[in-house]
C-alpha cells in the first residue's frame, strides 16, 4: 500500500492541516515509509487467530449512572471549561458564525 501526493493533500485537507506543495512532496515518501514498515506485519501468518484488542486479558469498565460522582469527570465546571476559549460570551463559546 502506498499513497500519492493527491491522497496526502486530501487527508491533510480532511484533517484541516494546511500544507504547501513542498511540504506535500516531503510528506509523501515519509508516509510511504511508515506504510511499508507496518506492512511487514502482513508477512506473519495469523490465519485461525482471533483478532485481539489487548495483549493482556482486559474488559471494558462501565460507570454507574450517577451525576458528578467524580468531580474530575462531572459537570458544573463552566469556568474551567471556558478558561481557554478565545471568545466566551454569556457562558457560551463564541465562534465565527457557522450557519447552514
Amino acid at each position: 500500500m502506498s499513497v500519492d501526493k493527491e491522497t496526502v493533500a486530501r487527508i491533510a485537507n480532511l484533517a484541516r492541516i494546511r500544507m504547501d506543495d513542498a511540504a506535500l512532496d516531503r510528506m509523501v515518501p515519509e508516509l510511504n515509509n511508515i506504510l511499508a514498515w507496518v506492512e511487514q506485519l502482513g508477512e506473519v501468518d495469523c490465519s485461525g487467530v482471533e483478532p485481539m484488542t489487548a495483549v493482556i486479558p482486559n474488559t471494558l469498565r462501565l460507570r454507574d449512572d450517577v451525576v458528578n460522582a467524580d468531580p474530575l469527570t462531572g459537570g458544573g465546571v463552566r469556568d474551567a471549561v471556558l478558561a481557554n476559549a478565545p471568545a466566551p460570551e454569556h457562558g457560551f463559546f463564541g465562534v465565527p458564525k457557522v450557519i447552514e
Binding site: 454569556h90 463564541g94 465565527p96 458564525k97 457557522v98
Partner: peptide, 12 residues
C-alpha cells in the same frame, strides 16, 4: 446563530 452579528454561540 441569532444572538450575535458575527459569532455563533456554542452550548455543550
Amino acid at each position: 446563530h441569532d444572538q450575535h452579528p458575527t459569532m455563533s454561540y456554542v452550548d455543550l
